[in-house]
Computed example of a mutant assay.
Amino acid sequence: MTKGQRIAELRQSNKMSQSELAKAIKVSPSTIGMWETDQRAIKDNDLISLANIFNVTVDYLLGNTTSKHGKAPEWANDQDKKDLKVFLEENSNDMTFGGEGLSDEEREQVRRILEGFFWEKQKRKHK
């Protein structure tokens, strides 16, 4: 899931319009639309505002964790976070079981398991 997709999902699950979110962050509704379609980069201060509004971590918005309230471990560096993103994209997006595709919920469960595995492995590497 891209940064924009996460923002759109959070906005919709909070029953907010793009205009309402734009007003809360003090940007234009078209900016929200471009963020949600990954056509415009998001400034750091806007990412922080989004995280506060939706009660999630910036790491979640950036795709560095699959848990809305979780975050990358304090010892994790930027390369670890990038590696996790690649690891999850390569290992969980197109999974099937018995030839049948996974539901979004099942795919998210697999991503959480893979994320836990990844951080445990990285933790051993950093010691």
Rank of each mutant, 00 (worst) to 15 (best):
M1R: 03
T2K: 06
G4R: 08
R6T: 03
A8I: 01
A8H: 08
E9S: 10
R11L: 04
R11E: 08
Q12R: 09
S13M: 07
N14A: 09
K15Y: 06
K15Q: 12
K15H: 11
M16G: 01
M16F: 01
M16P: 09
S17A: 01
Q18Y: 03
S19V: 04
E20Q: 14
E20W: 00
L21A: 13
A22G: 04
A22K: 03
K23H: 12
K23S: 13
K23N: 02
I25K: 02
I25N: 06
V27R: 13
S28E: 13
S28V: 06
P29S: 15
P29I: 02
T31H: 11
I32T: 06
I32G: 07
G33L: 04
M34F: 14
W35A: 01
E36I: 06
T37W: 11
T37A: 14
D38M: 05
D38V: 09
Q39D: 12
Q39T: 02
R40K: 15
A41N: 14
A41K: 15
A41T: 13
I42C: 12
N45M: 02
D46Y: 13
S49H: 05
S49L: 09
S49A: 15
L50D: 03
L50V: 00
A51E: 07
A51V: 10
N52P: 00
I53G: 04
V56G: 04
V56D: 03
T57V: 07
T57I: 01
T57S: 12
D59M: 07
D59F: 08
D59Q: 06
Y60P: 03
L61W: 08
L61D: 08
G63M: 08
N64D: 15
T65W: 05
T65H: 09
T66A: 12
K68L: 09
K68A: 10
H69A: 11
G70F: 04
K71E: 05
A72S: 14
A72M: 01
P73Y: 04
P73V: 10
W75S: 05
N77A: 00
N77D: 15
N77W: 00
D78A: 09
Q79E: 13
Q79V: 12
D80I: 04
D80E: 05
D80W: 05
D80K: 05
D80L: 02
K82M: 06
D83A: 10
L84H: 08
L84C: 10
V86F: 11
L88F: 10
E89V: 00
E89W: 00
N91R: 12
S92P: 01
N93C: 05
M95L: 15
G98C: 02
E100F: 03
G101L: 11
G101E: 15
G101N: 13
G101T: 13
L102V: 11
S103P: 07
S103C: 07
D104N: 13
D104K: 14
D104V: 11
E106R: 14
R107N: 10
R107A: 12
Q109W: 02
V110G: 04
R111W: 00
R111D: 03
R111H: 02
R111L: 11
R111K: 15
R112P: 00
R112S: 03
E115H: 08
G116E: 14
G116S: 14
F117W: 06
F117L: 15
W119G: 10
W119F: 10
E120S: 13
R124S: 10
K125Q: 12
H126G: 04
K127H: 14
